[in-house]
């Protein structure tokens, strides 16, 4: 881009530079500001309850002074893990399918549809889960609203994101490398497993991180199908409550320490985000990846 010589540096300090620079600072400070606002709200609970009791209390009963977040942390982790276990292989299948196996009109249409599904509001996935999926699971094992239902709905929600990013990274595997493998007598299938997927692993890692981030943060769809009972589930048919659902369910009536405790759980989620972003920076090392947006 433009660089100017020091001799004319003074003209660079135009009102425009100052204005746009101020906006950029504002935008980049926003994440810190959000963190401090949430931290400020959480301070009351952190002071009164202390960090330790969030892990050791008997359970989560804010009205009787019990604030154990672990069941919700476990619920979030299990639901997200279940979703990722389903969505990652499926996303990879979709990516390899559109890149190497589908005739090009099919591939184009397939990607268009996946893009469309990436934009469908989570509340509509939740609605489908609630009305269609939960009754089906309830036939297998009551009550239907369960870890399984939440994982399935969530898997469907994160699948488009994962499939799109995976497609991008599989497509960016150099053609020569694939042709070289074929020339060496690799079958199509083993080229896939031994060349394409390892070459695309960076992009696949990005897809996994972004997908997991989305799965952990998702609230509405999960809340609609997970049953929302505070417990560590013993089977996939038991209801669970996630951190985000916990916030959404209780913030409306929570007061004082209870409200503040909910902000503590938001801090936990922010901590996860920071971790995921750091991991993403580490994996991509920037520049190396095409622009990938969490969606």
């Amino acid at each position: 881009m433009y660089l100017r010589s020091p001799a004319r540096a003074s003209t660079v300090l135009s009102p425009m530079l100052i204005g746009a620079g101020a906006l950029a600072l504002l935008a980049s400070a926003l994440i810190a500001f959000i963190f401090f606002v949430v931290l400020g709200e959480a301070m009351a609970a952190l002071g009164e309850i202390g960090l330790w009791r969030f892990l050791t209390d008997a359970s989560w009963h804010p009205s009787s002074g019990e604030f154990n977040l672990l069941p919700m942390v476990a619920g979030t982790g299990l639901v997200a893990a279940g979703a990722m276990v389903l969505a990652m292989p499926l996303g990879l299948i979709a990516a390899v399918f559109v890149t190497f196996y589908a005739p090009s009109p099919v591939a184009t249409a397939y990607l268009r549809l996946i893009e469309l599904f990436a934009g469908i509001p989570s509340v509509l996935y939740g609605l489908w889960g609630l009305v269609v999926l939960v009754p089906i699971i309830a036939d297998l094992a009551a009550p239907g609203s369960s870890l399984l239902a939440a994982s399935l709905v969530l898997a469907l929600m994160v699948l488009p994101t994962i499939a799109l990013i995976a497609t991008m990274s599989v497509r960016s595997v150099p053609l020569e490398r694939i042709q070289a493998a074929r020339a060496l007598g690799f079958t199509k299938a083993s080229t896939m497993v031994k060349i394409v997927i390892p070459s695309a692993r960076k992009g696949l890692a990005v897809a996994a991180i972004l997908g997991a981030g989305r799965a952990v943060g998702e609230t509405m769809a999960v809340m609609m199908v997970a049953g929302n009972i505070v417990q560590v589930p013993e089977s996939i048919f038991e209801p669970v409550r996630t951190l985000s659902a916990n916030i959404a369910l209780e913030i409306a009536y929570a007061m004082d320490v209870h409200r503040s405790a909910l902000f503590v759980s938001a801090l936990v989620m922010i901590a996860f985000v920071v971790l995921a972003t750091a991991l993403l920076e580490f994996v991509t090392n920037k520049q190396a990846m095409p622009d990938v947006h969490p969606d």
């Binding site: 994440i31 981030g213 989620m269």
Partner: peptide
């Protein structure tokens, strides 16, 4: 910081 902001859950 914008990447991090994009990753913050909506809740």
């Amino acid at each position: 910081s914008l990447d991090a902001l994009a990753a913050v859950p909506s809740v």
